[in-house]
Structures are given as C-alpha cells and as structure tokens.
C-alpha cells in the first residue's frame, strides 16, 4: 500500500466526519507519521455536505491540502456527488451500500460497505463516523489498530467510549471482509 495517503472523509454536517478525520490524524501522529488535518468550515459544518481532509505520510508534508485524493469516504449521496470528482485515477471510494455509485468512472476502486445497517444493529446512528473509520483503516492500514483505538477512546465523550469502541470493532470487521472481497476480485 502507498505510504502517502490523501484522504477526504465527507458526509452531511453533524455526522462527525471532522471528528473522524481528527481521530485518524491523531492515530497517525501516534504512529510517528507526518500528518495534516484540515476541514471545511462555516455553513457547511451545519448541514449540507461537510468534509475533512487528512494527509498521512512518511515524508515531510509541505502543502497542507489534498492534491491527489487516493481515498474518499462519502457517507451521503450528496457528499459523493460533490466530492467524487476529487478522487485521483486509481483512488478508492468507501461508501454505504445504499448509495448510487453508477456515475463514477471505472478507474476508481469502489468499496460499498454496510455502514448504516451495521450501525443500526449497534443501535446508534451517531457512530457511523467511527464505524467507517474502522472500515477505512482495515482497508488501507494507514495507521495501527492500537493507535486508532487509543485515539478514538481519547477523543469521544467519555460516556460514549464503549459504544464507539464497539462501532470501531464492527467497522474493522466490515473493512476486513471488504478488503478480502476486493482482493478476490
């Protein structure tokens, strides 16, 4: 896998995509990687499509924004429609099974995960962001599982740690299955 990740996590405002990005960045830093996290601000953060960018690299990072997005996470159709054009050729998309990806070009690796059905089983839609983080990291191994778990537990409200850890575990499981499917294909 590439050692230089340019990741965009997107969804609707309030889904916690920025929190997810910060957690991923914190985990990468813990692993000793170079990392930059930026996000869209303002009205976007209060509804509509919201996005968070995370750069993770072994090399020094100068330019702080995504240039060649090799991983887009889109939690909503709107976010996918808005940001799919940013995915570089050969880049990956992770999204929910319910989302229509038929318009995407063939040179994008599309991974459709049962995000919402799984969080529904956990019993709380609010943890979709953490679940998808688990999915994402199981697919790309950008950070170590330990660092990611530590970052989750230190950056979510204390009363929700258990719930979020469960979401992360479920996400990891879903991600591993997806990865297997891709490799088989």
């Amino acid at each position: 896998m590439s050692k230089h990740w340019e990741i965009i996590i997107s969804g609707s405002g309030g889904q916690g995509v920025i929190t997810a990005g910060i957690i991923l960045a914190a985990a990468a830093l813990k692993d000793g990687k170079n990392v930059i996290q930026t996000q869209s601000y303002g009205p976007e953060a209060r509804g509509g499509a919201s996005r968070c960018e995370v750069l993770i690299s072994e090399e020094n990072l100068a330019y702080p924004k995504v240039q060649q997005c090799n991983m887009l996470v889109a939690l909503t159709q709107e976010a996918l429609n808005k940001y799919s054009s940013l995915i570089a050729p050969g880049g990956m998309l992770i999204t929910d099974k319910s989302i229509d990806t038929s318009a995407l070009s063939n040179d994008i690796i599309v991974l459709k995960a049962p995000v919402y059905s799984t969080v529904a089983n956990i019993g709380n839609l609010m943890v979709a962001n953490i679940l998808v983080l688990g999915v994402l990291n199981s697919v790309i191994d950008a950070v170590t599982g330990d660092s990611l778990a530590a970052a989750v537990s230190s950056r979510v409200p204390p009363s929700t740690i258990e719930l979020n850890m469960k979401a992360l575990t479920e996400g990891n499981r879903v991600g591993k299955e997806l990865k297997r499917e891709v490799e088989i294909a």
Binding site: Q37, T38, P64
Partner: peptide, 10 residues
C-alpha cells in the same frame, strides 16, 4: 491566516 489557524498538525 485561516489555513494555518484551522489546520491540525503534530
């Protein structure tokens, strides 16, 4: 500037 103010780095 807004970029420096809002970005996170280690």
């Amino acid at each position: 500037d807004e970029i420096v103010g809002h970005m996170r780095e280690g």
